[in-house]
Simulated assay, not measured.
Amino acid sequence: MEIRYPSHPQDVKRYTTDQLRKDFLIQEIFVPGETKMVYSHFDRIIAGGICPTAPLALEAGKEIAADFFLQRREIGIINIGAPGKVLVDGAEYPLKKTDGLYIGMGAQKVTFTSDDPSNPAKFYFNSTPAHKTYPTVKILVDNIVPAALGSISQSNERKIYKYIVPGGVESCQLVMGMTVLAPGNMWNSMPCHTHERRMEVYFYFDLAPESVVFHLMGEPGETRHVVIRNEEAIISPSWSIHSGVGTGNYTFIWGMAGENQKFDDMDHIPMSCLK
């Protein structure tokens, strides 16, 4: 498990491109036959990917000092690859592409498999500390009614799929979902916002091979950008904007942790304030 420590916004103003990428960008998330985990000290979220060519168990490391991974944690999972299964204490949950699964605190044995090891599943996940057990729930993307936002005139026509939110699939603090940009649209989360009460992780996927996303971060008056490629993620501190523009349309998964779970708790930034 890789550890990432918090960064002060005053320090980030002086970061080089390499330092920004080292502290915030998460690469090589899906390695066949392996589990990738990044532990961020921003609200102690763990983001990562599991790409099983043989059964892979979710293991606790010394970084969380637990007898098993979900002893004091919860986890949200979205499969972005070929079909696969997640076994939770003996119960089996098949997941096709963009189906999700929430597993509550206390599940002891979690194992990931691919239906076809030569064409493996890709299980992206976010995990946060938890203090209460909520039921394990399979989330079928076909059963989610997306919210339609944006417009083609602003190049941000998109659909928002809410997987783990209050009033839907309940959790202690994890909030998770997916945004799908329509063809011909490139902007996400613009006009931008911050939410001082929560951090966020963005995971970008379904980019064309030569496409990139210019992810914008930093304080509104001191913005920076990080170039992100397909199946890479970025940590967004609570003090930072989180927006981006791509060279083509794409999809991203967002996961949040922190003080509350209100999806619309946003401090909107006037376009005139961006620098």
Rank of each mutant, 00 (worst) to 15 (best):
T136S: 12
L181R: 04
T179D: 00
R224P: 03
A107G: 05
D89A: 12
N79W: 03
I160F: 11
Q10W: 11
R21P: 03
M186I: 14
G248L: 04
G246C: 10
S153K: 14
T136E: 03
A91F: 15
A54K: 15
F125H: 03
F24S: 02
P9R: 12
K162Y: 05
G100P: 03
G221P: 04
N260H: 07
D206R: 10
E2W: 13
I46P: 02
I64C: 00
S40H: 02
V165I: 14
A47S: 14
K109E: 10
D67F: 03
G106I: 02
V31W: 01
Y163I: 12
L56K: 05
S153Q: 10
G61E: 12
S171C: 07
P9F: 15
R4W: 08
N126D: 08
G244D: 03
G61S: 12
M1Y: 13
Q10I: 06
D43M: 09
K262L: 10
I50T: 05
Y204I: 13
H242S: 05
G255T: 04
M176Q: 09
M271Y: 11
E59I: 15
L25V: 06
P94H: 04
H8G: 10
I235L: 14
G258V: 08
K36I: 06
L101I: 11
A147V: 15
R4E: 08
I228Y: 01
I45D: 00
G184R: 12
K97R: 15
Y250E: 01
L274Q: 04
M178I: 01
M178R: 04
G184E: 06
S118V: 12
G76W: 04
I234S: 02
P209V: 08
S240Y: 03
L149S: 13
Y5A: 08
T111P: 01
S114G: 05
M199K: 07
L20R: 10
T128F: 09
K132P: 01
L216R: 09
Q154H: 10
V110H: 00
Y202D: 06
E74G: 13
K36Y: 07
G84P: 07
Q154S: 10
L101G: 01
S211H: 13
L174N: 00
K36R: 13
G49C: 00
H268P: 02
Y39E: 04
G177T: 02
L149V: 14
P135S: 11
D264E: 12
F125D: 01
K275F: 11
N119K: 13
S114Q: 05
V245W: 12
I46V: 15
Q27L: 09
P135T: 06
A148R: 15
Q10G: 11
D23V: 10
C273P: 01
G48K: 01
K36G: 01
R73S: 06
A121M: 07
L216Y: 13
I234Y: 01
N249S: 12
F69R: 02
F24V: 08
I64Y: 00
Y202M: 00
R229Q: 07
S238E: 15
D43V: 06
E222W: 14
